[in-house]
Design a protein around this nucleic acid. Structure first.
Lengths: 121, 121
DNA sequence: CTAAACCTTGCCGTTGACGTGAAGGTCAAG
DNA sequence: CTTGACCTTCACGTCAACGGCAAGGTTTAG
């Protein structure tokens, strides 16, 4: 498939896909015309990228982790053991972020609570 | 207290505090010399700002919400009812972020699991 | 065969929360 | 009274993940 089709199926833009390639996250084949050619499994790969990006990982971290994520999401292939540390680091980062989000949400919850109670004294 | 002392106590930098003021989050008094003068409670305010920033709120949203957060965190003063919508919007944003983080962490967990199992077949 | 709809590389623009000097005023210690 | 550690206001720089546009090549429908 070509870049626009992949973008459509993965819910992103061609520009983003070229950026991912520039960052070493994707390595599409090239047609004789110079056009990028993607395998169907690239859809899943891009979805993984987006997921990890939305979790606050940067492209460098994803580039390190991505090779360990198998094409078939349901079958976890033997991953790279030497990356366990990196994985743990990112896992901890995510947990820390979640804790901060929970704390911030608690503050908002208390404000919402106080505001709502005011309407029903 | 002056700006560097506040920065120290709140765990940030003078530059950030000036930025917060520029964005309308802080309104310190001024000495005759032109120096900014902060009340001790500003420490808590800055901590709230940092918390909300780390939760993904931007300074505009915080500027809207911050006036509703009382100095004494344990005593929730009557808040501004007209901001309940804005509060709910941010709350939902946070919840969405937490969900994404959880999903990403689950992916990492499965990779870590697969990697660890490999060492104990 | 031509026009529309793709694709390519290249390169500058954007957004948010600051960092980093520069040029100068202020204050406490010796 | 001077030195050094503060402080002030500009104002430009940074970083990440793209957006957008230009100038050109390719493919496909009619």
């Amino acid at each position: 498939m070509r870049i626009s089709e992949l973008a459509r199926q993965a819910g992103t833009t061609p520009r983003a896909l070229r950026y991912y390639e520039e960052q070493g996250l994707l390595r599409p084949a090239r047609l004789a015309s110079g056009y990028r050619h993607y395998e169907p499994q690239a859809v899943g790969t891009v979805r993984h990228i987006q997921l990890l990006l939305s979790a606050g990982l940067n492209t460098a971290a994803i580039a390190e982790i991505l090779p360990c994520i198998p094409d078939d999401v349901t079958v976890l292939a033997p991953t790279c053991p030497e990356l366990l540390d990196a994985l743990a680091v990112e896992r901890n980062r995510i947990t820390t972020s979640m804790d901060r989000l929970a704390a911030a949400r608690a503050v908002l919850d208390r404000l919402i609570q106080a505001g709502s109670v005011r309407d029903q004294p």
